[in-house]
């Protein structure tokens, strides 16, 4: 059971994020919701990197007797997560700057009032 808790946390974070995006009215909170979804997905990727009894993937300092690859932890999920975090920062910055400009033009952050484009 205990090994499933991180995956439950992943699903819970994605659902919390979706809840914030769908039901919160403040644009900043929507942005926070997207951030939470992103953290959930990143947590998921990091979880996949765990190998029980694995060793660090440094070829020059392998413990004697280890064979490649089953005992070596491949750093791929970590690399993916780092990439995803960097992309996430860019998206977050762009979204917040858009929110700032929208507030200047519309005078509100209520998502229900920011809908001049409809129908």
């Amino acid at each position: 059971m205990i090994e499933y808790i991180p995956f439950i946390a992943v699903v819970a974070m994605i659902l919390i994020g979706l809840y914030a995006v769908v039901f919160r009215r403040n644009l900043i909170k929507i942005v926070i919701g997207i951030s939470i979804i992103e953290s959930g997905v990143n947590l998921f990727l990091i979880m996949l990197g765990y190998r029980e009894g694995g060793v660090a993937p440094i070829f020059t300092s392998l413990p004697p007797g280890t064979t490649y690859p089953p005992e070596m932890v491949l750093p791929v999920p970590q690399a993916l997560t780092l990439t995803s975090i960097v992309i996430g920062v860019a998206v977050l910055a762009l979204m917040l700057s858009l929110v700032m400009h929208i507030y200047r033009k519309y005078g509100t952050l209520d998502v229900r009032k920011i809908r001049r484009l409809k129908e």
Binding site: V21, I34, I37, L98, I102
Partner: peptide, 18 residues
């Protein structure tokens, strides 16, 4: 300078980043 363009961009990034 158009509010609508910003609105469209915000909608686009929310939808496509999710």
């Amino acid at each position: 300078t158009e509010g609508e363009a910003l609105e469209a961009a915000f909608k686009y990034i929310v939808v496509s980043s999710i």
